[in-house]
Write a protein that binds this DNA or RNA. Sequence first.
DNA 1: CGTATCAATTACTCCATTGGTATAGACGGG
DNA 2: CCCGTCTATACCAATGGAGTAATTGATACG
Lengths: 117, 117
Amino acid sequence: MRSAETVSIEVVQQVADYFSVLSEPMRLRILNLLRDGEKCVQDLVEATETSQANVSKHLKVMLQAGILSRRTEGTSAFYSVADDLSYELCNLVCDRLASRIEEQAKHFRAFSLTSRS
Amino acid sequence: MRSAETVSIEVVQQVADYFSVLSEPMRLRILNLLRDGEKCVQDLVEATETSQANVSKHLKVMLQAGILSRRTEGTSAFYSVADDLSYELCNLVCDRLASRIEEQAKHFRAFSLTSRS
DNA sequence: CGTATCAATTACTCCATTGGTATAGACGGG
DNA sequence: CCCGTCTATACCAATGGAGTAATTGATACG
């Protein structure tokens, strides 16, 4: 069993760091663009409509987190997803958010019925 | 299929917000303390050794994110986990981090063998 | 009642991070 | 060999979030 005291500060910090990487909309957008397959920096710059420096910085963060992998070809750098965990996590969160919204919709439907009777 | 263009900015923002809640060590520590069951604010203050205001703020963040639920009894406020999703996510990340470290250990072992032969 | 305790909120400071501009470095084409 | 393109980095301004101290509000106890 996992008890409260056995979890060290370093472990908690590393888990927090991992979630921190996924807590930026721009990074999630880049991850989403990489679902299709590897893309070079320029492609991502055009797709995200932000500065090239910004894209490179976010890519570096995800690369160091082990989420992405990097391959160079000439002057271009191609990035691809190295670990599907981030997608799993995103899907879980998305599904849960969807469920909550559906629950809320049910409450509205229920109220609609009660007020009609 | 989920394509890149279909994911709206609001959805990305909400997913990022959810991960953002889990990206703070203090909040993960509190979540971990709540594995045993509900606890009042004072208990968490003593366990985390931080200020009461700080604990209350983190609890509010997780409450509004739908991760925790709140119950009052006299002047005390008892918090408990309302959604196991956060635990699932933490477990997935922890397992993956552990796997990576084990992989690294294998690399060291392999190098140890090759240099010995 | 008056006091003590518990929790939430406010105001504030400090630090981390984001995004932009500008620059440097690497490679390919002419 | 120079120029254009692509990427990474350094620097800066602005923003956001964590933590603390102090205050307020509410309830239990004497």
